[in-house]
Computed example of a mutant assay.
Amino acid sequence: MYRAAGLGAGYSSHSGRRTFAARSVANGHPLETVQILLGHSNLDHVAPYLDVSKRDTIEAVAKLDLGI
């Protein structure tokens, strides 16, 4: 299916779900919503689909108010 769409090796249903989950969270959707959309009964099952980029991590840390 992926090759028919012109996508090379490395693309799969799993990679599509991972991209969907990561982009949903990056766009501000709660993990609980992503859990429901992926069809998982347990929130812990969503974690493997989440890829947080180094840039996103740095930005999140920069936004922390540490009260210093």
Rank of each mutant, 00 (worst) to 15 (best):
Q35R: 09
A60E: 00
A9K: 12
A47D: 04
A26R: 12
L50W: 06
G39R: 10
A62L: 01
S13L: 14
I36V: 12
K54Q: 13
S13F: 08
G6A: 02
K54T: 15
A4S: 11
V34Q: 05
Y11P: 03
S12C: 03
D51I: 13
I36N: 06
V25D: 04
D44F: 08
R18L: 07
A9M: 13
H40Q: 04
L7Y: 07
L64T: 08
V25N: 03
N27R: 13
P48S: 14
A9E: 13
G16T: 09
P30G: 13
A22L: 05
Q35K: 15
D44V: 14
R17D: 06
D51Y: 07
S15H: 09
S24H: 07
E32W: 04
T19I: 14
E32D: 14
G28V: 14
L64S: 08
S53K: 04
A47N: 03
N27H: 10
L64A: 10
I68M: 08
R23Y: 09
M1S: 01
L43T: 09
V46R: 01
A47H: 05
V52T: 11
D44G: 12
A47Y: 06
R17M: 15
L66E: 00
F20D: 02
I68D: 07
A9I: 14
R23V: 08
Y2S: 13
K63G: 14
S41V: 13
V61L: 15
Y49M: 13
A26P: 00
S12Y: 04
K63F: 06
E59G: 05
G28H: 04
L43V: 13
F20Y: 11
L38S: 08
V34S: 05
H45T: 15
V46G: 01
A21L: 12
R3V: 06
G10S: 15
Q35D: 01
A9S: 15
H40M: 12
H45V: 15
D56F: 05
H14E: 12
A60P: 00
H40V: 14
V52H: 02
S13W: 05
T33N: 06
A5C: 05
D44W: 02
M1V: 01
H45I: 15
R17W: 09
R18K: 09
V61G: 05
Y49S: 12
A22H: 03
L64Q: 11
A9H: 03
A4N: 08
L31S: 07
K54W: 05
L7T: 07
S53L: 03
H45K: 11
Y11R: 14
V46T: 08
I68P: 02
S41K: 13
I36S: 10
L66F: 00
G8M: 12
H29L: 15
G67L: 02
G6Q: 01
A5H: 02
K54P: 03
A22E: 06
T19C: 13
E59N: 11
